[in-house]
Structure formats: C-alpha cells, structure tokens
C-alpha cells in the first residue's frame, strides 16, 4: 500500500478539478449540481485515503485477537455523516432549480441572463 505514494491524492485532485470545471464552465444548473456532487465525493475519498493504514482492517473489534491494526475511524465518522448531509443539501439545491425553472422557464444560466438584459 505504501508503494502507491501520492497517487491517490493526485486522482482525488483530478476528480476535484473535473467537478470544479463542471461547476464553472457548464451553464445547466442540474449539471452544476452533478459537478458539485463529483467535487464532494472527491473530498470524501481524500479523507478516507488519509484514514487508511497499510495492512489495517476496518475499525470493528475482532474478538480474541490482540495484534490487529485498525484503520483510523475518525475520517469514517466525519464522512459518514457528511454523505447524508450532502444528499440533503443537494436536494435543497435541486428544489431551487425546480423553482428557477418555474419562474424563468429555463435552467440554462445564459438564457436566464439573456432575458435579464
């Protein structure tokens, strides 16, 4: 596991940038929220990567075993709650998209801007 060095972090940054690009370059509001979700998941992977210990196992106690290496449980706890909070906040964003569509008749950012000019 140690042999991988920083590879995981680089992939995390790549995913993060893909999400970031979707967020800033695409005008469709639903696509923006999907990009935000990609970004969010990349942060989850970053945290979980940091919690991993080479040769470790899931942090659930094994009965009768003394010499077991457990991975760090703290990132797991933080991300576990963040996932559920993430879907709740995404739902809030999606409901805003629905209301924007009802008010302006479109969810394309440039079209909303065009009608405003």
């Amino acid at each position: 596991m140690i042999g991988l060095g920083l590879f995981n972090y680089w992939v995390v940054i790549f995913l993060m940038m893909v999400g970031f690009y979707t967020l800033i370059a695409r005008g469709n509001l639903v696509k923006k929220i999907i990009g935000l979700n990609i970004f969010q998941t990349s942060v989850f992977i970053l945290y979980i990567t940091m919690g991993k210990i080479a040769g470790g196992t899931a942090p659930i106690f094994v009965q009768g075993e003394q010499e077991v290496v457990y991975s760090n449980p703290i990132p797991h706890v933080l991300i576990l709650t963040a996932i559920v909070v993430g879907v709740a906040t995404s739902a809030l964003g999606l409901s805003l998209v629905v209301r924007i569509n009802e008010a302006f008749g479109t969810i394309e950012e440039d079209e909303i801007e065009d009608t405003a000019l």
């Binding site: 989850f44 991993k52 470790g56």
Partner: peptide, 12 residues
C-alpha cells in the same frame, strides 16, 4: 471505500 477499510462509509 471498502478497499480503504471504511465499510460504514461505503454502506452509506
């Protein structure tokens, strides 16, 4: 997440 030992997170 399963590979990274975070079974609870993977489940969620």
């Amino acid at each position: 997440f399963v590979v990274m030992d975070a079974v609870d997170v993977a489940f969620t």
